[in-house]
Design a binder for these strands. Structure first.
Lengths: 191, 191
DNA sequence: ATTTGCCTAACGAACGTTAGTTTGTATTTT
DNA sequence: AAAATACAAACTAACGTTCGTTAGGCAAAT
C-alpha cells in the first residue's frame, strides 16, 4: 500500500462515515479529494474494494488483539479488562474506519461477506471464551453466555456513536468506566 | 392509512431490513409485492416517505412509553425496569421497523432529519431523567449520567441484532436479564 | 524510457419518479 | 333493475439523472 493510496483511503473513510457506504457515491469520495472519479481507479479496483480494505483491516486489528490476550495467563477479570481496553483503543484511534466497520459491513458481497462474518464470529468467540473462563473460575455469575457476550460487545461498540476526541473522557477512562460497569454485572457478589 | 397501505408498508419494511434503506431500490420493494414500481406511488409520495413513516411511527411509540412511565410515581429502579421492559417490547414486536428505525434514520433529509434527532434526544432525556432520579434518591452510584444513559440504551438497542422470535428467551425474559445486568452496574452496594 | 497518477470522455445500467391510462368495484342516478 | 358516475389501485411507458466503471491519453517523476 503506497502512501498515496493510504491517504486516499483515509479521505474516503471520512466521507463514507458521514452518509454510509451505500448512500455515498464514488463521485462524493473523489470530490473530497479534489480529483476526478475515474482517477480513484488507479488505486482501487472498485468501490467495494475500499469497503473491503476498511472492514478487513479493522477486523484484523481486533483479531490480533484478542488472540494476544487469549494467550496470556491472567484471570478472567483481568483478561476482560484488557480486551475492553484494547477494543476501545482500536475503535477510538480509528474512528472513521470503526464506524464503517461496524455499520457498513453488510454491504460486502459474496465471499468477502462470508469471510467477514466468519472473522466477526471468531472475535466474538474470543470474548465469549474469556467470560466462560470467568464462570469456570467461579468468579462470574453463571448466566447465558451468548447473552452476556453480546451485551458486552454492544455497550463497547456503541461508543463510536458518541465518542469525540474533544470529549472529557479519554479512551483509557472510557475503557475503565465501561469495564467497571460490565464487571459489576458479571462478578459474583462477595458476600 | 388504508389497510392496503399498511400491508405494503409492512412488506417494504421486510425488504428494507435486509439490505438497508440506501441499498434497497424502489424496484426491490415493488418486486417483493409483485407489483410495478410506479404503483407504489399510488400509496406513497416518495421512497423517503416510507422511511419517514417507519422512523416516526417507531419514535412515537417510544415517546408514548417513556412519557407514561415518567408520570408514574415509582422509584427509579422500578421506573428503569419498566422503561427497559417497554423498550424491549417495542423493539421485538416490530422487529423490521425497529431495525430500520435504529439503522437507517440517517438517510432522512432536511426537516425530517432534524425533527427525528429532536425526538431521539427527547427520549434519551427521558431515560437520563430516571437515572438522575436514582442518583438523587441515593440509590444509584453517582456517575457520568450521559455515559450511563448511553450504555443503557446501547445494550438495549443491540438486541435487534440477535433477537429471534424462535430464540429461547422471550422479550420479557430478555428485559429482565438486561435490567438485572444494567442495575447491578448502577445500584450502590448495600454494604 | 518506463512508470505513476491523474485527466477527459463516455459507456450501459440502474435509479427515483412522472404522466397518462386501464381496470375493477362501489355508489348514485335514472 | 339498469345505467351512469366516482374512485382506488394497479398498469405501461418513459423521463432525466446518477450510478460505478472503462478506455485511452498526457504530463511529470523516476
Amino acid at each position: 500500500m503506497t502512501e498515496r493510496k493510504r491517504q486516499i483511503l483515509q479521505s474516503a473513510q471520512a466521507v463514507l462515515k458521514m452518509k454510509g457506504y451505500a448512500a455515498t457515491s464514488v463521485r462524493d469520495i473523489a470530490k473530497s479529494l479534489e480529483m476526478e472519479p475515474a482517477s480513484l481507479y488507479s488505486h482501487f479496483s472498485s468501490k467495494e474494494d475500499i469497503l473491503k480494505l476498511t472492514c478487513f483491516d479493522m477486523a484484523s486489528k481486533f483479531d490480533r488483539a484478542i488472540q494476544e490476550i487469549n494467550t496470556l495467563y491472567f484471570d478472567a477479570e483481568q483478561q476482560l479488562r484488557m480486551a475492553i481496553k484494547e477494543h476501545v483503543q482500536i475503535l477510538t484511534s480509528h474512528l472513521d474506519s470503526a464506524i464503517i466497520f461496524l455499520r457498513d459491513w453488510r454491504n460486502l458481497t459474496g465471499e468477502s461477506l462470508s469471510k467477514f462474518i466468519e472473522k466477526r464470529n471468531s472475535y466474538e468467540k474470543g470474548i465469549r471464551k474469556i467470560i466462560q473462563t470467568g464462570i469456570d473460575e467461579g468468579r462470574f455469575n453463571e448466566s447465558d453466555i451468548k447473552f452476556a457476550t453480546l451485551t458486552v460487545l454492544s455497550s463497547v461498540n456503541w461508543i463510536v456513536e458518541w465518542y469525540s476526541p474533544q470529549g472529557k473522557l479519554n479512551p483509557t477512562q472510557i475503557a475503565e468506566k465501561l469495564s467497571d460497569f460490565i464487571l459489576s454485572g458479571l462478578i459474583k457478589n462477595k458476600l
